[in-house]
Protein backbone atom coordinates (compact mmCIF):
# COMPACT_ATOMS: atom_id res chain seq x y z
CA UNK A 1 0.00 0.00 0.00
CA UNK A 2 0.94 3.63 0.30
CA UNK A 3 4.40 4.48 1.43
CA UNK A 4 4.95 8.18 1.97
CA UNK A 5 6.44 10.59 4.51
CA UNK A 6 4.07 11.19 7.38
CA UNK A 7 4.45 14.95 6.99
CA UNK A 8 2.67 14.93 3.65
CA UNK A 9 -0.53 13.56 5.09
CA UNK A 10 -0.44 15.78 8.14
CA UNK A 11 0.35 18.86 6.11
CA UNK A 12 -2.53 18.11 3.77
CA UNK A 13 -4.80 18.00 6.81
CA UNK A 14 -3.32 21.27 8.06
CA UNK A 15 -3.91 22.96 4.73
CA UNK A 16 -7.49 21.77 4.50
CA UNK A 17 -8.08 22.94 8.04
CA UNK A 18 -6.61 26.36 7.30
CA UNK A 19 -8.79 26.70 4.24
CA UNK A 20 -11.90 25.94 6.20
CA UNK A 21 -10.76 28.37 8.84
CA UNK A 22 -10.12 31.11 6.30
CA UNK A 23 -13.55 30.57 4.80
CA UNK A 24 -15.16 30.71 8.23
CA UNK A 25 -13.56 34.08 8.92
CA UNK A 26 -14.30 35.57 5.53
CA UNK A 27 -17.78 34.34 4.73
CA UNK A 28 -20.85 35.98 6.23
CA UNK A 29 -23.46 33.61 4.94
CA UNK A 30 -24.45 31.20 7.70
CA UNK A 31 -24.77 28.23 5.33
CA UNK A 32 -21.27 28.81 4.01
CA UNK A 33 -19.93 29.20 7.50
CA UNK A 34 -21.42 25.82 8.39
CA UNK A 35 -19.85 24.30 5.27
CA UNK A 36 -16.48 25.68 6.35
CA UNK A 37 -16.92 24.11 9.77
CA UNK A 38 -17.56 20.79 8.03
CA UNK A 39 -14.34 21.20 6.05
CA UNK A 40 -12.41 21.82 9.24
CA UNK A 41 -13.94 18.79 10.96
CA UNK A 42 -13.09 16.63 7.99
CA UNK A 43 -9.50 17.91 8.06
CA UNK A 44 -9.23 17.04 11.72
CA UNK A 45 -10.51 13.56 10.93
CA UNK A 46 -7.93 13.20 8.20
CA UNK A 47 -5.18 14.04 10.68
CA UNK A 48 -6.47 11.28 12.97
CA UNK A 49 -6.51 8.71 10.15
CA UNK A 50 -2.98 9.63 9.11
CA UNK A 51 -1.75 9.33 12.65
CA UNK A 52 -3.56 6.00 13.05
CA UNK A 53 -2.07 4.71 9.83
CA UNK A 54 1.41 5.60 11.09
CA UNK A 55 1.11 2.98 13.82
CA UNK A 56 -1.21 0.60 12.00
CA UNK A 57 -3.74 0.79 14.83
CA UNK A 58 -7.56 1.17 14.66
CA UNK A 59 -7.70 4.04 17.21
CA UNK A 60 -7.41 6.75 14.57
CA UNK A 61 -10.32 5.32 12.65
CA UNK A 62 -12.41 5.16 15.81
CA UNK A 63 -11.74 8.84 16.43
CA UNK A 64 -12.85 9.54 12.88
CA UNK A 65 -16.11 7.67 13.58
CA UNK A 66 -16.69 9.85 16.62
CA UNK A 67 -15.98 12.96 14.59
CA UNK A 68 -18.49 11.79 12.00
CA UNK A 69 -21.11 11.30 14.69
CA UNK A 70 -20.43 14.70 16.09
CA UNK A 71 -20.53 16.31 12.67
CA UNK A 72 -23.91 14.76 12.00
CA UNK A 73 -25.37 16.02 15.27
CA UNK A 74 -23.79 19.41 14.82
CA UNK A 75 -25.18 19.81 11.34
CA UNK A 76 -28.66 18.82 12.48
CA UNK A 77 -28.69 21.37 15.31
CA UNK A 78 -26.84 23.99 13.30
CA UNK A 79 -29.23 23.78 10.40
CA UNK A 80 -32.24 23.92 12.73
CA UNK A 81 -30.75 27.07 14.25
CA UNK A 82 -30.17 28.55 10.83
CA UNK A 83 -33.78 27.83 9.93
CA UNK A 84 -35.16 29.58 12.97
CA UNK A 85 -32.80 32.50 12.50
CA UNK A 86 -33.94 32.78 8.91
CA UNK A 87 -37.59 32.71 9.93
CA UNK A 88 -37.01 35.41 12.49
CA UNK A 89 -34.77 37.79 10.51
CA UNK A 90 -35.41 36.82 6.89
CA UNK A 91 -31.68 36.81 6.29
CA UNK A 92 -28.73 34.49 6.59
CA UNK A 93 -26.21 37.24 7.15
CA UNK A 94 -24.34 36.40 10.34
CA UNK A 95 -23.53 40.08 10.92
CA UNK A 96 -27.18 41.03 11.00
CA UNK A 97 -27.79 38.52 13.76
CA UNK A 98 -25.66 40.39 16.25
CA UNK A 99 -28.13 41.28 18.98
CA UNK A 100 -26.12 39.29 21.46
CA UNK A 101 -23.50 41.98 21.79
CA UNK A 102 -22.37 42.90 25.26
Amino acid sequence: MLTAPLEYGLFLAAMLFTMGFLGLLVRRNLIFMLICVEVMLNAAGLAFIVAGARWGQPDGQIMMIFILTMAAAEVAVGLALILSIYRRTKTLDADVVSQMHG
Binding site: L24, L25, M33, D95, V97, S98, Q99, M100, H101, G102
Partner: peptide
Protein backbone atom coordinates in the same frame (compact mmCIF):
# COMPACT_ATOMS: atom_id res chain seq x y z
CA UNK B 1 -13.18 47.46 27.20
CA UNK B 2 -14.21 43.82 27.36
CA UNK B 3 -17.84 44.39 26.53
CA UNK B 4 -16.63 45.85 23.24
CA UNK B 5 -15.33 42.38 22.42
CA UNK B 6 -18.86 41.03 22.80
CA UNK B 7 -20.08 42.69 19.63
CA UNK B 8 -22.33 39.86 18.54
CA UNK B 9 -20.45 39.09 15.32
CA UNK B 10 -19.76 35.36 15.15
CA UNK B 11 -16.75 35.91 12.91
CA UNK B 12 -15.06 38.08 15.48
CA UNK B 13 -15.61 35.43 18.10
CA UNK B 14 -14.12 32.83 15.74
CA UNK B 15 -11.15 35.12 15.18
CA UNK B 16 -10.63 35.38 18.91
CA UNK B 17 -10.85 31.64 19.40
CA UNK B 18 -8.41 31.09 16.52
Amino acid sequence: VLSRAQDGFVRHYALGIA
